[in-house]
Simulated scan of single mutants.
Amino acid sequence: MSPRRQAVLKAVVQTYIASGQPVPSEVIARQHRLGVSPATVRNEMAALEEGGYIRRPHPSAGGVPSSRGYRYYVEYLAEPVEVPEAVKQRLRKRFLSAHRNMEMWARLAAESLADLLHNMAVSVLPRVKPVRLRHLQLVALEELLALLVVVLDDAEVRKDLLPLDNPCSSSDLEQVADRLNALLAGLGRREIALLGARFSPFEREVIRAVLRILKWAEAELAVEWATEGLAYLLSQPDVANLAQVRSLVGMVEEGRLTQTILSLAPERGMRVVIGEENPEDALHPFSLVLAPYGTPHAQGYLALVAPMRLAYPQAVAGVGFVASLLTELVLSLHPRPSAS
């Protein structure tokens, strides 16, 4: 995308986030000082619409960012911001004055994030005991298809189909399974993901499937979470569709929102999931800003749920700061073992 087109897209996104109204080309040319005429801005907006970055509610309306437009903005155009220092100090003092209790901190994190960003926040409490792999087996089904059988540490059996790029005999599959069992047995998902051993392409494919199974198993376990700010979210002008509200509330009450957060959350860093990138239809009108917190052995997750029309730099900064604060607190309860 050319620099000029990027500048027009950035102006459309930022203006729409601020106003909530479709953005005409005249407003972009007048308010953002791009050094081009309204006609040039119109041409660039037409190209952005053709590329799927903006849409128009009707032919004569201004531009509205699409999921793709928001994604491009978040990835390439948004400028990072910091949570104001006074807000950081206030939040830090609030957490440090609370009881040293993970449930209390989780509730406080969701409340603080919801109040800070005026949207819904979810804090998923850490699990201290991860799901671990006991044993895996590879069974030939067809010439280019194998069955992966995974036995978890509680003896639960999970299965997945693995397409093969090249034919493998039963003895080939058995050798791969024996090597992986020697390396992976007894390990949890995060430990497996950090392994530095050299693997063949097929072994890496098996490991990816094992990691998926372990993540699914973790997501299905009973989890504790705190949700705050639903009233903030429902008061947003972008959330006016009653069917959308019912679907979202249903996800919260049934625990499906928490399971979705667990399936989408990154192991480190931040992740922003926008609109139709969400796997659940009920979340297509919304964006999620996700971050892990805690330690590899006691990891929880923090999520902001908001309309797509969201001040993304502020949201990322807020979620990131509260997650880092929670990590400090979790470390005070579960300190890292000292090096011997």
Score class of each variant (00 low, 15 high):
163 P>A: 07
164 L>Y: 01
167 P>Y: 00
171 S>V: 07
172 D>Y: 08
173 L>H: 04
173 L>I: 01
174 E>K: 07
175 Q>W: 01
175 Q>M: 07
175 Q>N: 13
176 V>K: 10
177 A>V: 03
177 A>H: 04
177 A>P: 08
177 A>T: 04
178 D>L: 05
178 D>V: 01
179 R>H: 13
180 L>W: 06
180 L>Q: 12
180 L>K: 12
181 N>M: 05
182 A>F: 04
183 L>S: 12
183 L>V: 03
184 L>V: 02
184 L>M: 07
185 A>K: 13
185 A>F: 00
185 A>W: 01
187 L>G: 03
188 G>V: 00
188 G>Q: 00
189 R>N: 00
190 R>I: 03
190 R>E: 07
191 E>T: 03
193 A>R: 04
196 G>D: 02
198 R>N: 00
200 S>P: 05
200 S>Q: 02
201 P>E: 02
202 F>S: 06
203 E>H: 10
206 V>Q: 11
208 R>M: 06
209 A>W: 11
211 L>S: 11
212 R>V: 12
213 I>E: 14
213 I>T: 15
214 L>M: 09
215 K>E: 08
216 W>P: 05
216 W>Q: 14
217 A>K: 12
217 A>Y: 03
218 E>H: 04
219 A>R: 03
220 E>K: 15
221 L>W: 07
221 L>C: 11
222 A>G: 15
223 V>N: 14
224 E>R: 15
226 A>D: 12
227 T>S: 13
228 E>F: 14
228 E>Y: 13
229 G>E: 06
231 A>V: 14
231 A>H: 14
232 Y>P: 08
233 L>M: 11
233 L>H: 13
234 L>T: 12
234 L>Y: 14
235 S>V: 03
236 Q>C: 14
236 Q>L: 14
237 P>L: 12
238 D>K: 07
240 A>N: 12
240 A>F: 13
241 N>T: 05
242 L>D: 10
242 L>K: 09
243 A>Y: 10
243 A>W: 09
243 A>N: 06
244 Q>M: 05
244 Q>N: 12
245 V>S: 05
245 V>Q: 13
245 V>F: 08
246 R>Y: 11
246 R>M: 07
248 L>Q: 07
248 L>W: 05
249 V>C: 03
250 G>C: 08
251 M>A: 04
252 V>H: 05
252 V>C: 06
253 E>K: 10
254 E>H: 13
255 G>E: 08
255 G>I: 04
255 G>N: 09
256 R>I: 06
256 R>W: 12
257 L>H: 10
257 L>F: 09
257 L>C: 10
258 T>L: 14
258 T>A: 14
260 T>S: 12
260 T>Y: 01
260 T>N: 13
260 T>P: 02
264 L>T: 01
265 A>W: 01
265 A>G: 10
266 P>E: 03
266 P>D: 05
269 G>I: 02
270 M>C: 01
270 M>Y: 05
271 R>H: 05
273 V>I: 06
273 V>E: 02
273 V>D: 06
274 I>N: 04
275 G>I: 01
276 E>R: 14
278 N>H: 04
278 N>M: 00
278 N>A: 11
